[in-house]
Design a protein around this nucleic acid. Structure first.
Lengths: 112, 112
DNA sequence: ATTCTTTATCGTAATATTGCAATATAATTT
DNA sequence: AAATTATATTGCAATATTACGATAAAGAAT
């Protein structure tokens, strides 16, 4: 026991969970915010920006990359990381749909 | 070491991370989808719907509740759980803003 | 009152995540 | 080629999460 039973859930559900999980850490939210703010991206900037060691930041960047939320490109001796718009769009789409569903079909219980 | 350094990040960043983290598990995505689908909510339905034991489902429900994503109300001898529209709205808002920012200021690197 | 139903909690094992120091790698500069 | 710079990987300790059997709690039905 202990391991998530991903295989029992649909690919769609797993896809959303995996994106959300990647964002589910403040350091990784901060990284995304920073990439968006500077609108250009070299990892060392991020290390300086975060209250975490270089290896830890590298690890978080890896997690974001594996989830498809950011992309990295070798650029000289540093690496250019930036947001993958498609991943954010997927999340935006998903929560947009949830929101729409909720506001149209107002729930028939828990009426508080 | 091992514990997330939440205290080093802004409340806003922590709030998003905590919501995303709660959704970051397929069982919890499935729970939300189910609550939305049936548009009414008794936990036992959810247990039957998921490939997980009752205690595990209960644990996931607790996680969702603590994150503010669902609400529960005692209803006879069962509990009526349902989505908290405000939490979904927060996420929708956040990713909407990210998406908008990305599409307007197109990134000046990683141009692939 | 006893039994049934529904949900929560406890205890515990398996696994995953977080964080960092040390080290490795690889391009850049000197 | 040595030193520097930027990033990744390894190894490991601390902590958190996931899952479930057993059990508890609490209202409902008999």
């Amino acid at each position: 026991m202990g391991a998530t039973k991903t295989e029992h859930f649909s690919p769609k559900v797993n896809a959303i969970a995996s994106l959300a999980k990647a964002i589910g850490h403040p350091a990784r939210v901060a990284i995304i915010e920073y990439l968006l703010k500077v609108n250009t991206c070299i990892c060392n900037d991020i290390v300086n920006e975060l209250p975490l060691s270089q290896p830890t930041v590298s690890q978080h960047l890896k997690a974001l990359k594996e989830a498809g939320l950011i992309q990295g490109e070798v650029e000289g001796n540093s690496i250019c990381y930036c947001i993958n718009p498609k991943a954010i769009e997927k999340l935006n789409n998903y929560f947009g749909k949830l929101s729409a569903k909720i506001s149209t079909e107002h729930l028939n219980c828990c009426t508080k």
